[in-house]
Design a binder for these strands. Structure first.
Length: 279
DNA sequence: ATACGGTCCTGTTCGC
DNA sequence: TGCGAACAGGACCGTA
């Protein structure tokens, strides 16, 4: 569920609270949450214990916490993952998967994940981005992101534009919600072919992606329920500003035409049938 | 190399 | 009210 703005909101919270703190103990409560840490749960805990978190970084929807050991704790929230800074005294959450305790006895970092699509693993922190996410493309906020260059890559793809927006190896950070929102802003139907699309249209679309992210970040992320919360357990309020996603039958705010919903690539797409002409 | 469907999970909501 | 089906914000893997 969490897309770039939600992950960035979490990153800021972690950076603020956990930066400079030393890990005293780690408890892995579900092995699936560390399935990509091939050396196993014991090794995972062992390599974290005694290290100090020195920051919090992000690319797309991946988050990693550099450690003073030269490693980093790489995290992906999947569909339902949360990273919470909780009082040690707080009761364990139903879906608590990993607990990270610190020298500070008052608070813990907790990875809570109902569906267990999320994960944590330890990686080497030597490169600019961990090699484990080499296949993840830059997101729109990275200094190295070039909209023209990205548009050039997008228009070579023989697929529909929404599929390409969701392809993290082409551009990262966009998920189903913000794809629909950006397409609505751009008055573009998600099933339009990306192949050979004029670069300027794509650059404009990418501008709308960024605008949508900016607005969501200002609101602290999007949430429909308690599944997405920032590190303090507060939900974002951006869902109030959604123009397309989840608004089937409700009037388009530009033209009053009821928002339509259709199956697309195994999930739902929401769009205005008048503003976003189907190909 | 690229495109696409299926799959990994649990919980909630929907329709009969 | 009960029950199975459909659905949920993501990424990876195997297959074509």
């Amino acid at each position: 569920m969490p897309e770039l703005p939600e992950v960035e909101t979490v990153r800021r919270g972690i950076a603020e609270w956990a930066g400079g703190r030393r890990i005293s103990e780690v408890e892995v409560r579900h092995p699936r949450s560390v399935r990509h840490h091939l050396a196993g749960a014991k090794d995972f805990a062992h390599r974290l214990r005694g290290t100090t978190i020195t920051g919090a970084r992000r690319r797309g929807k991946f988050l990693w916490l550099p450690l003073d050991s030269g490693d980093a704790l790489l995290c992906h929230l999947g569909m339902s993952g949360q990273l919470l800074v909780q009082p040690t005294a707080a009761p364990d959450e139903t879906h608590l998967r990993i607990r990270v305790a610190f020298d500070d006895p008052d608070r813990q970092l907790r990875f809570v994940d109902q569906r267990i699509f999320g994960e944590m693993r330890i990686c080497y922190d030597g490169a600019e981005t961990p090699t484990e996410i080499d296949h993840i493309a830059a997101d729109v906020y990275e200094p190295g992101f070039d909209a023209e260059e990205c548009a050039a890559a997008i228009r070579t793809r023989r697929s529909e534009i929404k599929r390409v927006l969701l392809d993290q190896s082409v551009i990262s950070g966009i998920g189903n919600i913000y794809a629909d929102e950006a397409l609505w802003k751009a008055r573009m139907h998600g099933r339009e072919s990306a192949f050979g699309m004029p670069s300027q249209r794509i650059v404009e679309l990418l501008g709308h992606v960024r605008d949508t992210f900016d607005a969501a970040l200002r609101a602290g992320g999007t949430s429909f329920d308690a599944l997405y919360v920032n590190v303090n357990g507060q939900s974002g309020y951006f869902e109030r500003s959604l123009a397309a996603y989840g608004r089937e039958h409700l009037p388009c705010s530009r033209c009053d035409t009821p928002i339509a919903r259709e199956k697309f690539a195994g999930r739902s797409s929401f769009y205005c049938p008048r503003c976003q002409e189907a190909p």
